[in-house]
Amino acid sequence: MTNREKLQDLLQDILLLDPSEFRFDLMRDDVQMWDSLAVVAIAVGVDETFGYHFTPEEAMTIKGVPDIMALLETKSISFAE
């Protein structure tokens, strides 16, 4: 499984999305379930899946899927297709 697939799988589970609803340019405002509790769950899930734990400051800057990928790219976790 690639990192892109792992991230998609994770976010679909947390945000309770069908595969057809997921996009890599999805923003927080596009998804009803993406509230502050989802931010906590994403931090837990990213830690479990990619072994990196967002700091609270980093978690606060996340406005969408591109931000998650950009943050993880800075930790050498690649999402190249």
Binding site: L16, L37, V44
Partner: peptide, 11 residues
Amino acid sequence: TRTNSTLVRPD
């Protein structure tokens, strides 16, 4: 559930 210490998934 959404603040569980370990992620809870549909499966």
